[in-house]
Structures are given as C-alpha cells and as structure tokens.
Design a protein around this nucleic acid. Structure first.
Lengths: 219, 219
DNA sequence: TGTACATCAGTGAACGCGCGTTCACTGATGTAC
DNA sequence: TGTACATCAGTGAACGCGCGTTCACTGATGTAC
C-alpha cells in the first residue's frame, strides 16, 4: 500500500478524493471554507456555492451531497460560531471574582467576538430573518442567552444588582450589542477610543442597575 | 386645449408622460416608489431597478435619467429618511420639560422610528458599508448625531448628568440602537413586553449617568 | 398665423453576468461469494 | 486467491432566472423665425 504513493503528484489535483466511508470529511472542509471566505471577504454575498466549492477544490454539485441548500450551509456555519461565542463568554465570566465582574468580562468578550468576526456577527445578529425562521434560533443562541440570563440572575441574587433578571439581561444584551454593531456597521464614524468607550457602556449599565449601597464598588 | 381631454382614457397607460420641463416629477415618484417597496416588502433585495420602474409605471432605463446607478438611488432614499428621523427626534425632544426628559423622549422616538420602518432602519444602520463609503455619512446622519450630541450636552450642563458628552452620547445611541436592532432582527425571540422593556433600557442608562443628588428625580 | 426644428421624456431590445440547482454520469473501492 | 458487483464520492454540462446597465431610437412639445 505504501509503495505506490509516488503517483500522487501528477497533474496537480486540487483535492484527493476521500476514501469510502470518509465522505464526512468533505462536510467539515466545506464548513471551514465557507467560514474562511466569510472572514476573509467580510461579505456574505461573496460566499456563493460556487465560491465555496472552488475554495475546497471540488465542483459545486458536491456541496449538495452534504447540505440541502445554500441556506442550510449558512445556518450550519452560524451554529458553529454561536457555540464558539457561547464558550468564549462562559470562559470570560469564569475567571471573575464576583458576579458583577463576571458580567463585565462577559460583555468585553462579546464585543471582542463581534469585532474579530464582523461578517459572522452581521449574519448572526444583523440580518433580517428569512422567510423560514432560522433553525439555529431554537438551539445554540438560546443556550447562549440562557447562560447570559444565569449570569445576570447570579448578580441579582448576590444583592449587588436589582431588577427583573429577564429585563436586566435583555438590557445588557442591548447595550453590548448596540455598541458592537455600531462599531461594525459605521467604521467611518469618528468613534472615541475603543477601550474607554466599551468600559463606559458597560459601567454605565452596571451603575444604572446597581443597588444604592454597593454602587461603585465594582469598577 | 380643454376640449380634447376625453382622449386620455384609452388603452390604459400606466403613467402619463411628464410635460416638457417637468421631468423632475419622475425623480420624486421614483424615490417614493422605492421607499414604498422597501416598506411594504421589508426586503432590500426586492427593490430592484426593474421593480421600482414597474411600480412607477415606467421602463427600467428611465431610472437612469435621474440616478447614476442603483446605489445612488438607495442612498437618496436613505437621505430622505435620515432627515425624517432627525426631525422626529427634534420634535420629540422639544416638548419635554427638562433636558433629561428630552433625552428619554428622543430615545422613545428613535425606537418608534426603527420599529415603524424596519427595513429602512436596516439599511441605515445595519448594512455593511459598501466599497465606497456611503455618501449620506457626511450629511444627514451627521446632522442627526450633532443634534443628539447637543441634547446630551444640555443634560450634562444642567448638572443632572455627568460624563464626557461624546462618550455619553455614543453610549445612549448604542443602548437605543441595541434594543431597536434586536427587536427588528430577532422577531422570534420571546421579548418582554415592549414599553416596559424600552423604559427599562432608557432609565437604566439615565440612572447610570445621573449625578448622585439628582438620581431618580426624572423618572 | 404657420412651420421647421431642437429638446425633452421617455421606450424597446438586448448585453453579459453570476447565481442556485438538477441530472445523468463515472470511476475508484471495498465486499460477498 | 480471484472476480463480479454494489456502493460511495464525487464530476461535467446544462437549466432558467433576474439582475444592472447600455444603446440606438421615438414621438410629443415648446420655441424661434
């Protein structure tokens, strides 16, 4: 089996065909290529079935061996990144000393994620929903929001914050989402310096939600 | 001249050709049709040159008599709405009793605008910027932001609020933009009741920005 | 008052493009006998 | 150990579509003489 390996390098095939039973490898490569295209071009429209196929080194119909249609592929890409965002937030919050500090660290990580993958963020959070509600709605992003809600509840239960946890969670999300999306969609605006701006947004929120006796104690 | 008016109703022409010197009428009709299409379909992609032309009752090439290309048309639509948003905010703030109250009313009006024209809002604030920076950037939306900044400065100067006006203005914008865009792009999410949610976002901001002695006095 | 003519407000047909998707196929590879 | 065969991982060519845009034109209308 090892003796005939010298034949491989002829006529420059872009990709070696997977062996029997290893068809799933292509699925992974397609997902990676689609995501890479999205990150590199920062343009959802550049991610066509044809472009993804070419990036993988395969013909367009091959995509349909693993994905029902184009939307199915994009949703799959989103689900992976939602999962990654969720993990990033959980890890950022885990190192904090107290629940309020955890919220701040989670917020910073959220903005960081958005600025690192702006086009993915656009697809996840700024796109209009299509005719069929995006399937990911019922899976990964709900998990991420549940974790966020849990982090907020912990802060409220610690006594450092007051308010209805759901309202507070949505409000915090709105604040970090607001600054993240503005930074992404309005790059030509003359923004103040980035870190002070993010800190201002987070601390204004926290201060607005703090109970009077603990106020200012977690800056 | 009045005697031959009976001839008009033959063969159902979709639009009467403008008279000499009245060519600008078409420009206005195109703008209105494009905006109406955007509002009705809630889908930017549905607004093609062809669709706009048909809505006006004219052939596609006629659009090019008044607009350089498709982008030029969309930008023109945006500029009109930016101007309208600006006016709506100014009017909302004018009726308030004090500067902080004015900020709250401006915030409510902003969210209302977004929810009333979601697809226009998407184009104004959620789209990625194209290869050429959108020309409206340097005109209408800057005027709107300047007015916002002035409203914030008034609140800071009144002593009810503290902080760098620019940071505060951007932070407030981020908060209202955040909740507006989430409501638009995630309609399937189980949101809390709308008015309490918006009030929560606005009052959390205001409370987070208030000077200690005036805190809670403007709810 | 009559008429040639420049101008204006459009039209009709066509261009090339890239897209998502389908369909019949091919050729390597593992497996059953 | 040899061979027929089912299966698997793809390919090649084509489909129809709607799009933005261009180009040469037409016919009504106001104006100059």
């Amino acid at each position: 089996v090892g003796g005939s390996a010298a034949r491989v390098s002829r006529a420059a095939p872009r990709r070696v065909r997977a062996r029997r039973g290893e068809g799933e490898k292509l699925k992974e490569q397609i997902l990676e290529a689609a995501e890479r295209l999205l990150v590199v071009t920062e343009d959802e429209e550049a991610v066509s079935i044809r472009a993804v196929a070419e990036a993988v080194g395969v013909t367009p119909p091959s995509i349909y061996l693993h994905f029902e249609d184009k939307d199915d592929l994009l949703v799959a890409v989103c689900e992976r990144r939602f999962a990654q965002l969720d993990r990033a937030l959980e890890e950022a919050g885990a190192d904090a000393l107290d629940p309020v500090g955890a919220l701040i660290e989670r917020g910073r990580a959220y903005v960081r994620f958005g600025l690192e993958y702006p086009e993915l963020y656009r697809i996840l959070f700024l796109r209009r929903v299509g005719p069929r509600p995006i399937r990911a709605d019922r899976t990964r992003d709900v998990a991420a929001f549940d974790h966020h809600l849990a982090a907020v509840s912990a802060a409220v239960e610690s006594g450092a914050m007051k308010g209805d946890p759901l309202l507070v969670a949505v409000g915090l999300w709105a604040a970090v989402h607001g600054i993240t999306s503005l930074l992404i969609t309005k790059p030509h605006f003359e923004w103040p310096e980035l870190d002070p701006l993010i800190d201002h947004v987070l601390h204004t929120q926290i201060r607005g939600l703090s109970t009077p006796d603990t106020e200012g104690g977690t800056t």
